[in-house]
Simulated scan of single mutants.
Amino acid sequence: MVTSASSADEHLHNIQAVRRKVEHELKLNISVAELSPLHQQRLLYIPRMPPLLRGAFRVVFGDRTSAAYDVEEIEKRFPKLFGQPVVKIVPNSGGPVTIGKKLRIGVVLSGGPAPGGHNVISGLFDHLHERNKDSELIGFVNGPSGIIDCNYNILTSQSIDPFRNQGGFHLLGSGRTKIETEEQFAMAREAAKKCELDGLVFVGGDDTNTNAMLLAEDFKAYNIDTKVIGVPKTIDGDLRNTYIE
């Protein structure tokens, strides 16, 4: 019998789905049968990983960036960030897949819930632990106020797994606090230092990514080593550029 590539992929996907179901029953100490049919089906789904991210890769810096308009005003407001190069991820043939250094990465959900928020968290968690099993993912609770108040949880597979592929922002909660005052920035700096964050990931829309930019500018001005990253999450289509559809 000749098996097509598509049917073979489907068979492998089904095997992985059954394995995921068993893993969930063991890790969560609950029966998957107790969950709703929709919850069960979402848990069994395994997102496809871009081939580039499955193995070793490296970062390549490209051309200097600019703004689409109000260039002088934006450069004046963000003197530390403006003009940073485009960053590309490319395969690193023969390079190590693991990262020797233990990383501590913070993540925060902000603004209105949108699909994919929980899978950003689970993807971060999986990648960190595949590269170094001792790395930690720190979830700040109830939006940016969790950073200001240093209110967080150390995320584990037990806490993350029930939310894989699920909608909403229930794992961490969300909020719309804007980091604006000098006191708030100072408290955020202290939280980054206290948690020894190598990176801080904001998941949200235009307001959230503005928060991320302001905080990144502040961190650079005060020589805080934490790298700030914004992940676009919006149902409004208001975060568009050459690299975001």
Rank of each mutant, 00 (worst) to 15 (best):
P96D: 09
D134F: 06
N209S: 09
Q41C: 02
G123I: 00
L197N: 08
R54K: 14
T65C: 14
T98H: 02
A191R: 02
Y45D: 11
I160P: 05
L171C: 00
K27E: 06
E10F: 10
E190Q: 08
H170V: 10
N241Q: 06
A56C: 05
L12D: 11
R42G: 05
G204H: 10
F202V: 09
L128W: 01
F61R: 03
D236W: 11
R104H: 07
D218M: 07
E190G: 06
F140R: 08
R104K: 12
I138H: 08
Q166L: 07
H24F: 04
R104W: 03
G143W: 07
V108A: 04
P51Q: 13
Q16C: 14
P96F: 09
G173Y: 11
P232W: 15
D161S: 02
D238M: 09
V231S: 14
T98G: 03
E180Q: 12
I30Q: 04
N223G: 10
S174D: 14
G205E: 04
A188R: 01
S159M: 04
K194L: 10
P91A: 04
D70H: 11
L197H: 11
H11D: 12
A191W: 01
L137Q: 01
L214M: 11
V108K: 05
L109N: 05
L155N: 08
Q84N: 06
D149V: 10
I244C: 13
P50C: 04
N153V: 13
G123T: 09
V59H: 10
F163L: 05
G199C: 00
L171K: 08
G106F: 06
N241C: 08
F163K: 11
